[in-house]
Amino acid sequence: MEFLEKISKAIEELKGEEAETLVKEAIEKGIDPFKVLNGVTAGARAVGDKFQRSEYFLLELFEGAEITEKCLGLVTPHLPREATTKRVKVVLGSVAGDLHDIGKNLVALLLRSGGFEVYDLGVDVPCKRFIEEAEKVNASIIAISALMYSTRLAQKETIKLLEDLGLRSKYKVMIGGGATTKPFAESVGADGWAENAVEAVNVAKQLVGTEG
């Protein structure tokens, strides 16, 4: 098996120590850091694919994300600065008043395994906070979750706030959560809506025209 395939396989199989050792060895042997990065992201994607096939669950996504982040931490210093800013950044959270986070957590983990750089603001996030964070990290996507009917209007208000601040064109906004539907997303001017966590990754990729 190719060295880089081994890295990918170790991440896919959630063998954290092995994956880290392989990444360190690859760097020491002078393998192109971009290729190492590809090995790491392929492993992360494989973890997400296994979730989609019901072979992995949330626990495995947690572990896969942790291993991937550690491996990325090892390889990133060896990449040119401009390369490290290439990952698409997503700012995500559950809206103000909403403390539900299982679905939002799933989306965050699957986006990470899909190659996105995710800034998870947690639950009960005020509209302005989404925008402040997106501005701070130079995000491309703002992803907003709402599980309750009475909290979903905060998604609309976040989009309105972006418009009022003259920042709407700067970001793609996607919404989701149990209280949302496609017609609702269209009515509030969201750029994308996902019915579930797996679909959210596809929507994010479509929005930025990338593989993440």
Partner: peptide
């Protein structure tokens, strides 16, 4: 069922509309 709006006020969490609904 969840009341979506009452007396013209939308049900929005943490606003007067939520109380009214």
């Amino acid at each position: 069922g969840v009341v979506t709006s009452a007396y013209g006020i939308e049900n929005r969490a943490r606003t007067p509309g939520e109380i009214i609904c």
